[in-house]
Design a binder for these strands. Structure first.
Length: 291
DNA sequence: TTCCAGGAAGTCG
DNA sequence: CGACTTCATGGA
């Protein structure tokens, strides 16, 4: 039997340092990547199995099964984005007047915002309430292995929302979803009559898209902002979780501010790409050992 | 043991 | 409006 992971492709539009590479794939934007070792990750995006490799020349290589090559090639480029785009985004952030942002950007100089499939981004962050990243990954691994669509060999894709509508709440709880199971079942039922809605959100402006997402059971402002940022490329989204609350009150003197106020400050202070700034601050804060 | 995790939604005053 | 609870589960 031949190794299916052949024909490694250099992705020339991303030359990250190791920390930025690891943080982008496995820092809490996506929950589908498993580390094989510190330089290699494996994961299924949409219906494509991938392996991704970093080496010390700051080169990123990807591969998939030969069967999926053309589709994988197009998907990976869209997923990671281009050098030109990120040079512009980095230069637009207000690091010249914000020393803390500048320090965070220097810690992860090549950090990117992934462009993930809509449905799996919504599912991932519906699982995220008061869960650690490793636990979210475990929940999604269980539901993928039990209810996902077979792709090839042992690889399966996450169940789509039509499939989620046919899974019982009890089965979701058996996948360790806990109280989130009810939200996912209700959101699946809500999406069932209009399965195109989840893709139509990408055409909506940020405010409209956020209102749409917040009408889904279990989606509040924070989850909506994560889905909009990591699944719909709405870079003005500024997710405020417990890490960002701590970071902002310490670094920007926002003692006692409520999440909604912090989100408003973030969008106002960091500008139209506030979500990218948020990810730099989130990554740096979370790397600090304890508190 | 206690606290906390990429929160949301319902209740009470 | 704001503060407080409940909702499961497991890691630190």
């Amino acid at each position: 039997m031949t190794d299916p992971w052949t024909d490694w492709q250099l992705y020339k539009d991303w030359r990250p340092d190791l920390a930025s590479f690891q943080e982008t794939l496995d820092g809490g934007q996506a929950f589908c990547w498993d580390a094989l070792d510190e330089f290699n990750y494996e994961g299924v995006v949409s219906n494509i199995p991938f392996r991704v490799r970093w080496d010390s020349t700051k080169s990123v290589y990807w591969t998939s099964y030969r069967l999926f090559f053309d589709e994988a090639d197009a998907l990976f480029g869209k997923y990671i984005g281009t050098e030109e785009t990120y040079q512009m985004l980095y230069d637009t952030l207000p690091w010249r007047s914000d020393a803390h942002l500048k320090a965070c950007m220097e810690a992860f100089p090549d950090l990117r915002i992934l462009n993930q499939p809509h449905g799996e981004t919504l599912l991932g962050f519906l699982c995220s309430a008061t869960k650690q990243i490793v636990q979210i990954k475990e929940m999604l691994r269980l539901i993928r292995d039990r209810f996902g669509a077979p792709i090839v060999d042992c690889y399966r894709s996450l169940p789509d929302w039509e499939t989620l509508n046919s899974i019982t709440e009890s089965d979701l709880r058996d996948c360790k979803f806990g109280f989130r199971a009810k939200n996912i079942s209700k959101t699946a039922a809500l999406l069932h009559p209009t399965p195109d809605l989840i893709d139509m959100i990408v055409e909506q402006d940020y405010a409209t898209a956020k209102t749409t997402l917040c009408s889904f059971p279990g989606v509040g402002e924070k989850v909506a902002d994560c889905v909009l940022l990591f699944g719909y490329q709405k870079l003005e989204a500024f997710p405020v979780d417990t890490w960002i609350i701590k970071a902002m009150q310490r670094r920007y003197d926002l003692e006692g501010w409520h999440p909604k106020q912090v989100a408003h400050f973030g969008r106002s202070h960091f500008g139209k790409y506030a979500g990218l700034a948020q990810q730099f601050i989130f990554a740096s804060e979370r790397k600090q050992p304890r508190k």
